[in-house]
C-alpha cells in the first residue's frame, strides 16, 4: 500500500495560475498558492462553487494549461504537457468523443495511436466496453447513444489506455438523477477494481460524499485556494440515509454557508 501510495502521487506546492500578462503590475490570479498532496490510488474530490478554478486546476494537472508559478509534480516529474499517464474525462461527451468513429473505434483510439496489434486492441476494447456496460452497442456512433451511454464511452476510452491517474471534470453533471446514480456506483466499482488515482471535480456535495475518500474544498475565486480537506472514511457502497453521511453533509454545507 505504501509503495502504491508513493507511485502516481501528485505533489502541488504554491501553485498559481494567472491569465494576465506578468508585466502588468496588478496580477489577477485565478488560483493562488495551492498546496496539495494526493496519494497514489486515492479518490480525491475537488469541491467548490462555480468559477472558483476547479477546472483550471484539473487542466493544469492534465498538462493542458501551463502554470504561472509553483510546483506541480506527478510521479516526481514536473508536469509541462499532457501524458498517457493522466487521462481526462470531460464534462461534455459530445465535444470530446469522435463522432465519426463507432463506440469501439472511440475506445480503441489511444491503442491505435500507440500501434497496439489489432487483436490486442480488440480484446482490450471488449473488456472495457463490457466493464462500462455497453456490450451490444460497439458498432453504434456516438449520436445514436444517450447522454449516459456517451459518458460511459468516454470512461471506457480512457480506461483502455490504462492510465494511472483519472482526471474527471464534472463528468456526470449533465445526466439525469437516476443515470447519474448508476454511473457514480459504477465509477466507485471501477476505482476499487483498478486502484487508479482519481481526481473528481464537482460542485455537488452529495456526489462528493458518495464518491471520494477525501474532499478538498476550494474557496470562492479569484485567488482561490484549497482551504479545507475533509476525510470521508465511510465504507463503500455508501448509504445516503446514514447518520454519518448526514453529519458530514451538514458540516460541508455549513462550510459554504459561512
Amino acid at each position: 500500500m505504501t509503495l502504491l501510495a508513493k507511485q502516481n502521487a501528485i505533489h502541488i506546492e504554491q501553485l498559481r495560475k494567472s491569465y494576465s500578462e506578468p508585466s502588468v503590475g496588478d496580477v489577477h490570479y485565478i488560483i493562488k498558492d495551492v498546496d496539495l498532496v494526493i496519494k497514489g490510488g486515492e479518490f480525491f474530490i475537488l469541491l467548490g462553487p462555480s468559477g472558483c478554478g476547479k477546472s483550471t486546476l484539473l487542466n493544469m494537472i492534465a498538462g493542458f494549461v501551463s502554470k504561472s508559478g509553483g510546483n506541480l509534480r506527478v510521479n516526481d516529474v514536473e508536469v509541462n504537457k499532457p501524458g498517457r499517464d493522466r487521462a481526462v474525462v470531460f464534462q461534455q461527451a459530445d465535444s470530446s468523443l469522435f463522432p465519426w468513429l463507432t463506440v469501439r473505434q472511440n475506445v480503441e483510439f489511444g491503442l491505435r495511436m500507440k500501434k497496439t496489434p489489432k487483436e490486442e486492441q480488440r480484446l482490450i476494447s471488449d473488456r472495457y466496453i463490457r466493464l462500462v456496460g455497453l456490450t451490444g452497442h460497439e458498432e453504434k456512433f456516438p449520436k445514436e447513444l444517450s447522454g449516459g451511454m456517451k459518458q460511459r464511452v468516454q470512461l471506457a476510452r480512457v480506461l483502455a489506455n490504462d492510465p494511472a491517474i483519472l482526471l474527471m471534470d464534472e463528468p456526470f453533471g449533465a445526466l439525469d438523477a437516476m443515470t447519474r446514480r448508476t454511473m457514480q456506483k459504477e465509477l466507485v466499482n471501477i476505482w476499487r477494481e483498478t486502484h487508479k488515482t482519481v481526481i473528481f471535480v464537482t460542485h455537488d456535495i452529495q456526489e462528493a460524499l458518495l464518491l471520494g475518500e477525501r474532499i478538498g474544498i476550494m474557496s470562492v475565486g479569484p485567488s482561490s485556494n484549497i482551504t479545507d480537506i475533509y476525510d470521508n472514511s465511510l465504507s463503500y457502497p455508501r448509504d445516503v440515509a446514514s447518520q454519518q453521511f448526514y453529519n458530514l453533509y451538514n458540516t460541508i454545507q455549513g462550510h459554504f454557508e459561512e
Partner: peptide
C-alpha cells in the same frame, strides 16, 4: 473542439 484535441493528446497522439 478543444476537448477533442486535448483528449487525443492525453491519449498519447502525436
Amino acid at each position: 473542439e478543444e476537448d477533442k484535441i486535448r483528449s487525443a493528446r492525453s491519449m498519447g497522439a502525436s
